[in-house]
Write a protein that binds this DNA or RNA. Sequence first.
DNA 1: AATGAATGAGCCTTCATTCAT
DNA 2: AATGAATGAAGGCTCATTCAT
Lengths: 193, 193, 193, 193
Amino acid sequence: MSTPDAPGAAPLRADAARNREHVLAVAREQLRRGAPLPPMKDLARLAGVGTGTVYRHFPTQQALLAALGEDATCELAVRVRAAAEEDDPVRGFARVVTAVVRGVLHDPAVRAAVTGAGPGCAPPTRAAVQLDEAVGQLLRRARAAGAVRDDVDADDVRLLVLGLAAGLAPVAGDDARVERHVRVLLDGLRGRA
Amino acid sequence: MSTPDAPGAAPLRADAARNREHVLAVAREQLRRGAPLPPMKDLARLAGVGTGTVYRHFPTQQALLAALGEDATCELAVRVRAAAEEDDPVRGFARVVTAVVRGVLHDPAVRAAVTGAGPGCAPPTRAAVQLDEAVGQLLRRARAAGAVRDDVDADDVRLLVLGLAAGLAPVAGDDARVERHVRVLLDGLRGRA
Amino acid sequence: MSTPDAPGAAPLRADAARNREHVLAVAREQLRRGAPLPPMKDLARLAGVGTGTVYRHFPTQQALLAALGEDATCELAVRVRAAAEEDDPVRGFARVVTAVVRGVLHDPAVRAAVTGAGPGCAPPTRAAVQLDEAVGQLLRRARAAGAVRDDVDADDVRLLVLGLAAGLAPVAGDDARVERHVRVLLDGLRGRA
Amino acid sequence: MSTPDAPGAAPLRADAARNREHVLAVAREQLRRGAPLPPMKDLARLAGVGTGTVYRHFPTQQALLAALGEDATCELAVRVRAAAEEDDPVRGFARVVTAVVRGVLHDPAVRAAVTGAGPGCAPPTRAAVQLDEAVGQLLRRARAAGAVRDDVDADDVRLLVLGLAAGLAPVAGDDARVERHVRVLLDGLRGRA
DNA sequence: AATGAATGAGCCTTCATTCAT
DNA sequence: AATGAATGAAGGCTCATTCAT
């Protein structure tokens, strides 16, 4: 959950790190409720710190959102790598797609993670690069196994998954529908018989 | 383009109607450029009216956005009905999906139109109801022709199309990618061979 | 005291003009007490208007200060012109110097007026240009009458007067000292016998 | 450059003294560039210490500014004493006035030194008292030699010099103008022929 | 003694909406 | 009906100062 110290940056003091995590946790929680990111002042109050402390850690609201994404990206990359190493690449691929769609639906940080990579997006973070590599490997194996048509690349997959989740957002609780849409996407990705 | 007078409301005086359209046109144009809706004051200035006039026609920013969607919904419904009556229901279905995806990508009012219908959404307007009916009819014919699997309903189609467009938003200019994604969706909707 | 409507700008509505003057008056009063310009919020409260109204008239704290200077500059130009037309150019010159020194000491807006002209300063306003012309004429007459040495120009006079007042600021109430310093300056400007 | 240890205060440890000087040097440098005093945090960073260390030496921003002035005052007093002992009191007086004007223009600490003495000012420091005595002696000799009229006292001279420099501030680089203004002041101080 | 994280009041500014003209 | 001035609640951010490590 917590970002490991970046190389080259001084490790945070224990209390500073705690504050940083509190702020992130509060922000995550608010977003998870579907609310927009609250004013920095409220965030500070909810986290039990002063506004200055929030700004010390995240000089900008953007920076805070980016940090949320970075965390989620790391976790996601781990899961994708695990799936890529599974015996059955087809099942692995399906599992990842399902997991990511659910992740995006229930955790805005995951959405940020998926959004913050690929064409038309912010400069890729270290975590985003790792994620991309993991997805690329997974995709190659799935394609070799015939689960993915030849004319879609990793960016296509990313955009399609993200879009699928975006469409599902207003009915996120409807599990049957979510599964159905994932099935539609997987079938579409395999291509016409 | 213009909404017909609602039943029970006094018809607008000619100049009032013109003002209303000016404001809508300006708002549409700004959104089409990808900008967020500008402050009401700027909208008023760009439309050549006072802020008070904007508020006379649209008591709220929300109301203005809704009005933008209403217009687009009417147009969309017309196109869908035309496609539904085409001889080849499969081609008609493909055409509508393509048209809607492109519409959502290039006109936020179209997005509002598609978004503003179905489960989890704002109270349906008259136009939205008409659109839903047209889509329903189109879908029935496409399904009868084998172009759409049995386990997806009209809401699924709507959400999938909308999501597809949402995913494509950051690469809206990449026509090849757009076409590829539409093909993936259509194949997925047809189901496994 | 009030700035006449600028040509080409729509004249202010009566109530708007009143608000504008209230804000200026409050700001002037605060500065006259030697206080720094208060926060815009306080200014608004003291003037009995909302903060938005202050910002409508003065989009920036800088703009407000400039407006204060502009007012004073007009008045000053009027007085200088009157002095320049007096029969005795030597006495006229002395009178203006004295008046400006006293003005700068007691009205920060006058200081702004004198400061806001000449080399190293903000872009000259219309009022500043008029003031400069009036001072130039006065200076030519004084020099012709032998009251000012040949090697000082209008900018020198302005800077010397302004500096004199700056030096006197901490003892502004000591009239004898003020008069003495003015005498020193006038003698110095005439030059060694 | 460095203030001698105040009597009764424990002498600073060598490294503490070095830190103190670093902070002062950084502050001086910034002011000399015409910039306002930077945030304490930046000062600390530029000086290579923590903010806490800055506050250990200067409990307040005000205190830091005062310390800057104290240093300059000592130097100034030394120079004035030297000039007061020169053979020709007239030339000595002129030299001091010129030196102080230039000092005020180019070193805000010198300005603080001159400002921080006399009526209407902060409680005089030891250094300020010494400076005042040196100026008084210089002035007596200059007056005796006919270089200064009888009706101006040491405070007048101080205020006039300080004001002259204040006026010249916006054109500090224009050496010819600076010299001219000094000449005007010296002539004025001598009085009418 | 040094450090730098934390504090939090305060600042400037924006903008949806109301209302007098 | 139209106008645009006024409102005032937020919001994002800075920085002098305090205090735990």
